[in-house]
């Protein structure tokens, strides 16, 4: 029996979750205070994922960059790939919240969307 201690990151409460594993299979999850915690713990010990937030260059905007996020979670080990792939992406102003900036970033299956508005200069 393997025991893993985790800090839940699904919400800012940060529950301390204990997961018991047997041969890589989740046997029990305790310490979470909501179903999201259970889901997180199960995912984190078997297949950890993150939302990636970063910046993309903007042409002709009032600001030179626009903030973006992955519209879904990406595998933790692909975080830097997603960020790296965004470095070569540029968009033309205006950009609005929710605009799709890139599709299926770095083969993660997740689209990247704008999270702020940048008006045209």
């Amino acid at each position: 029996m393997e025991t893993r201690e985790l800090t839940c990151i699904r919400c800012p409460i940060g529950c301390h979750i204990t997961v018991e594993l047997e041969n890589g299979e989740v046997k029990s999850i305790t310490g979470n205070s909501c179903p999201r915690g259970e889901e997180y713990a199960a995912s984190e010990v078997t297949h950890p994922v993150r939302t990636v937030t970063s910046l993309v260059r903007v042409n002709g905007g009032v600001r030179p960059v626009v903030s973006v996020k992955t519209a879904g979670d990406v595998p933790k080990e692909k975080m830097m790939d997603a960020v790296g792939a965004l470095k070569s992406v540029t968009v033309d102003a205006p950009v609005s919240i929710g605009d799709i900036i890139a599709k299926d970033i770095a083969g993660t299956g997740a689209d990247v969307v704008a999270t702020s508005n940048v008006a045209k200069k």
Binding site: C11, P12, T51, T53, S54, L55, S67, K69, I97, T115, S116, N117
Partner: peptide, 25 residues
């Protein structure tokens, strides 16, 4: 909030995870 482009905002207020600029918006 405009410069806090990371996510984790709004879980209590909007029951979803937003970035700072989205929460402000």
């Amino acid at each position: 909030l405009n410069q806090c482009i990371h996510n984790g905002f709004g879980l209590h207020t909007f029951k979803e995870e937003l970035t700072g600029p989205e929460y402000a918006d």
